[in-house]
Design a protein around this nucleic acid. Structure first.
Lengths: 201, 201
DNA sequence: TGCATTTGCCTAAAGACTTTAGGCAACTTA
DNA sequence: TAAGTTGCCTAAAGTCTTTAGGCAAATGCA
């Protein structure tokens, strides 16, 4: 019983990349060590030389997605400011989620603090903060605004992908534009608290 | 070998309620037919007389959470308007997520269209729309605003629960308040596409 | 009250995924 | 080309899901 014993050329990198493709094609829920082994036409146990466990596979995909998002965000913001930059950054998230729904779902995985701190998520926050420089907000407010923008981008895209908007009249595209209009306005006229936060002594 | 053959008194209702508790205690990921059977000290197969499959269990928990959220939202909005109503509704989501993280995670499950249409999610959207009556927005804009509020509530709470805000300086509580301030302002000065906000000449 | 039917939980079993242990062949290197 | 390392393999145990069929308790009816 002679077999083709050519090696499959597995590696952590390739496995995670293939896992990301699998996620986009079949859904992140379907990403499994077994499915991945099938895709490489290899026995399941073989993957465990490259991955500690299935969690590492999922986490790897999440980190890949977060890094890709940060890269795209950096690209989108280069040379832009104000409303233009806001739209560009927002569209990075929306477009990525549409192109790579499985990866986007992976990016929402809860990571343990150290892993999260070393992820592209941090860079994304920095980039959002950079975007806000065009809006001239006082420092304590800037953090709040970063969080607002993150929430809207993340929330809107998740809800749209989840079909929350697919059964009422204006298409999600139109709301997206109008919401970005509104956020732009809001950032230009950001209300400071009546009793301003103590910035220092 | 005489056994205690008293019946466990299982029912779809009780199973889903217990599943919701399990979700809050152990995490929605850990909600499994097997774990539930263990909790009732009953054999796994017994649950399949009450549940078509494990998906039905998860969906049931999601629908329970969506209904509970809608109930709380209705309660919170009763007799309130404007900024007061906005805060009350927003806190419904945030408080619920903190009290019942497993159920909240369940509520984010993608439901098929018919199920979603019959869920508490619809009522939540209606209630959000009712809240906006206090802000007097023209009709096409109202839908956009509903979606914005939904996105912010959902996005912010998810990110906070996911730990996205736990490693930067102002606590999530403070940002929440400031963001609600900002949204209140935004809704009062909502920019319409034809007549842009008088930001300047 | 006694009998028949229904109901509720059981045993058994098969299939899928995860993970570990240990083996052999194919590469690498000297 | 012999020795060592690496890469994928077989084997096996554990968990979860789901279906089929069985027995006894609960219920309904005369």
């Amino acid at each position: 019983m002679v077999q083709d014993v050519a090696r499959a050329g597995l590696s952590r990198e390739r496995l995670i990349a293939a896992g990301a493709e699998l996620a986009d094609e079949e859904g992140f829920e379907q990403v499994t060590v077994s499915a991945l082994a099938r895709r490489f036409d290899v026995k399941v146990a073989s993957l465990y030389s490259h991955l500690r466990n299935s969690q590492e596979l999922r986490t790897g995909i999440a980190l890949l997605a977060l890094a890709e998002l940060a890269d795209r965000a950096a690209d989108a913001l280069a040379g832009r400011a104000g409303r233009d930059a806001l739209t560009a950054l927002a569209d990075v998230y929306r477009d990525y989620a549409h192109e790579h729904p499985g990866r986007y779902a992976a990016a929402q995985l809860r990571l343990d603090p150290e892993t999260a701190a070393a992820s592209g998520g941090v860079r994304q926050a920095q980039l959002t903060r950079a975007l806000l420089r065009g809006y001239d907000l006082p420092e304590p407010e800037q953090t709040h605004a970063v969080r607002l923008l993150g929430s809207v981008f993340y929330g809107y895209v998740s809800m749209e992908l989840g079909g929350s908007f697919s059964h009422s009249s204006p298409g999600p595209e139109e709301s997206w534009t109008r919401i970005l209009d509104a956020l732009d306005t809001l950032l230009r006229t950001w209300p400071t608290p009546s009793a301003p936060t103590p910035t220092g002594p």
